[in-house]
């Protein structure tokens, strides 16, 4: 099957790639653009490890086709820290709160949490838990993840 040329913006950079029409956005990010931070845990939109922002909206990259990225803006975990490497408060708080063990789900949690705080800067614990219900973590029992997100939100509100 012939491939399709796709132009998109990823983490602020203009990118081009050739996608097989059956490939997902996750495949394109990982295999064509070398952005391996987004993970495939299920391939069916159930685990959230491939969470990315598509024009600012939280999506599972495994449920978007690579060709659908044409003309759109995508933000992945690799675009979360500042250009000089300064960590986003969520990234810093995840490390400080020991909110990761194996770390495989961490990029998805961070991207999803950033999307939450963009629309709900002062979430309750319940709001965080329900928003992140689409991200599976098998190591932590979620306790320290929830605390890290709440703490990052507080810091970001204070800094704003």
């Amino acid at each position: 099957m012939s491939k399709i040329h796709v132009t998109a913006t990823v983490n602020g950079d203009s990118v081009e790639f050739l996608a097989d029409p059956r490939e997902t956005l996750l495949d394109a990010l990982r295999d064509h653009l070398g952005l391996i931070g987004s993970k495939e845990g299920c391939g069916t939109g159930d685990c959230g490890a491939c969470s990315v922002l598509l024009d600012g909206r939280l999506v599972s990259a495994c449920l978007v086709l690579g060709v659908e990225a044409e003309g759109h803006e995508i933000e992945t975990i690799e675009g979360m820290a500042g250009p000089d490497g300064t960590l986003h408060p969520l990234q810093r708080k995840f490390i400080e709160h020991a909110a990761l063990q194996c770390g495989f789900c961490t990029p998805g949690f961070l991207v999803a949490s950033k999307a939450l705080l963009a629309k709900t800067p002062d979430p309750t614990e319940e709001e965080v838990r329900y928003w992140l219900a689409g991200n599976l973590c098998r190591c932590t029992g979620y306790d320290k993840i929830i605390r890290a997100v709440m703490d990052a939100a507080a810091e970001m509100r204070g800094a704003a």
Partner: peptide, 20 residues
């Protein structure tokens, strides 16, 4: 409660797992 040495790689997506 020191910071874990692999934390930075894991929050930035740099850490390389089996499929990476």
């Amino acid at each position: 409660r020191v910071l874990r040495p692999d934390g930075l790689d894991k929050v930035t997506g740099r850490a390389r797992y089996g499929a990476d």
